[in-house]
Simulated scan of single mutants.
Amino acid sequence: MASRLVLLLAAAAVAVACLPAPASAVAWMVGDGGGWRAKFNQTGWAEGKTFRVGDTLMFMYARDAHTVVEVGREDFAACNLQANLLGAWNSGNDVVQLDRPGKRWFFCSVPGHCDNGMKLVVNVLGDDGVPAPAPAPESGWWF
């Protein structure tokens, strides 16, 4: 009887060891050491990075110099400062939770900053590692 229990426990241990490790959430420092800054988009910072639900974006910047706003695709493309905001931050030490799959669009709302490249788009993968389906095109802009 004891040998059956040992075998069963050993089989269970092997089965658990074969399960994929749960993904850990990543806290992404936007812009790495340079932070959220003018002409940010010229760095291609998001390229090659995989963002997942549960990760966070940390926007670090001089509080009086910049902001972070989240907008929709069209407002992002146009750098629309009168956009319908999905989120707004201005502490200089902002943490944005990536809580759903799909594309997320951010820019600095200080006049001229977005037009000069202070903008970021990230594609957030769901728990299954698959991006959310793309929404129907509204005006032909795709990012």
Rank of each mutant, 00 (worst) to 15 (best):
A27N: 13
F59H: 07
A25M: 07
G92T: 03
L9Q: 08
P131N: 07
P133A: 09
G129I: 06
G102S: 02
F106A: 07
D32K: 07
D64L: 09
K49W: 01
L57E: 01
V124A: 04
G102C: 02
R104K: 10
G92V: 07
W45E: 11
V130L: 06
A83W: 05
W45I: 02
N93P: 06
S3M: 11
A77V: 06
H66K: 06
S24L: 14
V26R: 08
D55G: 00
A13F: 04
D94G: 08
G92Q: 00
V121P: 03
N80L: 03
R73F: 05
F59E: 01
G48D: 06
A132M: 03
E47M: 14
V68N: 00
G129E: 05
E74I: 09
A77E: 11
L81Y: 09
W105M: 12
F76S: 02
N84H: 13
V121N: 12
D64H: 10
E74T: 12
V53K: 01
K103V: 09
L81N: 10
S3K: 12
R52L: 11
M1Y: 09
M1Q: 13
A2Q: 14
P101S: 04
G126E: 07
C114Y: 00
A78L: 14
N116D: 11
R37Q: 15
A25G: 13
M118E: 11
C18F: 06
F143R: 04
W141K: 04
L86I: 09
A77C: 10
G129K: 03
V14L: 14
A23R: 15
M60N: 15
A10Y: 02
A21W: 08
F76G: 01
D99G: 13
D99P: 00
V14N: 08
A88N: 11
K49Y: 06
V14M: 12
G102A: 04
L81R: 14
P101W: 06
F106Q: 02
P22N: 07
T67Y: 05
W142K: 10
A11P: 03
V16Y: 06
G92E: 00
K49R: 15
V30E: 06
G35E: 01
G129N: 03
A78Q: 15
F143M: 05
L98H: 01
L85P: 01
W142H: 14
L9T: 04
N41H: 10
P22F: 01
K39N: 12
L86R: 15
E74L: 07
K49A: 09
T67Q: 05
A132R: 03
V30Q: 00
L98I: 02
E70K: 10
G140K: 04
G54D: 08
V26A: 05
L7M: 14
V69I: 15
C79F: 02
V110K: 11
V96R: 07
G87P: 05
S139F: 13
F59A: 01
V6W: 03
G72W: 09
G35V: 04
A12Y: 04
M60E: 09
N93F: 10
G117Q: 02
V69A: 13
K49P: 10
P137K: 01
D75H: 06
K49I: 08
S139E: 13
G34K: 14
R4G: 06
F76Q: 05
Y61C: 03
W142Q: 14
P111S: 14
F143Y: 15
N84T: 10
